[in-house]
Amino acid sequence: MRILIDMDDVIANAVERFLEWYERDFGVRYTKEDLRGTKLHMIVPEEHRKIVKEYPHCEDFFKDLPVIEKSIEVVEELNNRFEVYIASAAMEFPYSLPHKTKWLDKHFPFIHWKRRIFCGDKSVLKGDILIDDHDFNLSVFDGRAIMFSSPHNLNDTKYERLDSWLDAEKLFDLK
């Protein structure tokens, strides 16, 4: 079985970086609960929206992102049993490429570089399962689409859902 796994907000905590940078720039700390069903740029004052939307285009945004809890252990176990690929639509953010590569080397060294896909359009992916946090990626996937919970997608009900990597342990019968 081939399992494709997204990076941002699935194994790498980009939401936390948005919250950190917003606090750094504007002195206000939003929480993940504040983002329930939306993204940060939608709830900040209108005069800050453009800046927040530009964050992922900044050179260091993707550098050393926090790891999503239990993702390393569970993805490693999946990798031991199945054909696992990391698939990130990274081409939209060219500065992210070296940071994502180094991040994977550091945290997921068991995912061989040949199983790392940096693309722009995930409709080209072929596999049995895609675990992703965005409808626009899941909706174009031909296999089993599984939504990984992130604050912005909590109101989406179209997909099978994983709320955490502990749920993935159960789903894939890893324990």
Results as ranks from 00 to 15, higher is better:
44 V>I: 11
160 E>N: 04
2 R>E: 09
165 W>S: 06
125 L>M: 10
12 A>K: 03
149 S>A: 07
173 D>G: 04
82 F>S: 10
63 K>P: 09
111 I>A: 02
77 E>K: 05
91 M>S: 14
85 Y>G: 08
40 L>R: 03
135 D>H: 02
61 F>P: 06
53 K>D: 13
106 K>F: 11
126 K>Y: 05
135 D>C: 08
174 L>P: 04
81 R>C: 13
168 A>F: 01
88 S>K: 05
89 A>H: 06
6 D>P: 05
92 E>C: 03
29 R>P: 08
147 M>K: 09
23 E>C: 13
131 I>S: 04
37 G>V: 13
108 F>H: 06
55 Y>A: 03
81 R>S: 14
2 R>N: 03
91 M>Y: 08
133 D>L: 04
42 M>D: 10
128 D>Q: 00
67 V>N: 06
24 R>M: 03
31 T>M: 12
16 E>F: 15
1 M>H: 11
77 E>G: 07
156 D>S: 02
150 S>V: 08
175 K>R: 10
5 I>R: 00
110 F>V: 11
126 K>Q: 00
84 V>I: 09
16 E>N: 10
25 D>V: 02
146 I>C: 12
74 V>T: 04
101 T>S: 07
54 E>W: 08
139 S>E: 14
84 V>T: 07
131 I>T: 00
2 R>P: 02
23 E>Y: 10
93 F>E: 15
157 T>Y: 15
7 M>F: 01
53 K>E: 14
16 E>Q: 15
86 I>Y: 06
138 L>M: 05
99 H>A: 10
45 P>M: 10
67 V>R: 04
112 H>M: 07
40 L>V: 01
126 K>L: 05
36 R>A: 08
51 I>T: 13
127 G>I: 02
158 K>I: 03
124 V>W: 04
172 F>Q: 00
93 F>V: 12
127 G>Y: 06
126 K>C: 00
113 W>Y: 15
44 V>T: 08
166 L>G: 06
74 V>Q: 04
156 D>H: 09
145 A>Y: 07
41 H>F: 14
29 R>H: 13
116 R>D: 11
22 Y>Q: 13
15 V>F: 11
144 R>M: 10
71 S>Q: 03
61 F>D: 01
142 D>R: 09
117 I>R: 01
114 K>V: 06
8 D>T: 06
85 Y>R: 00
50 K>Y: 12
113 W>P: 04
50 K>W: 12
160 E>S: 07
114 K>T: 12
53 K>G: 05
82 F>M: 05
159 Y>M: 08
84 V>F: 02
27 G>D: 10
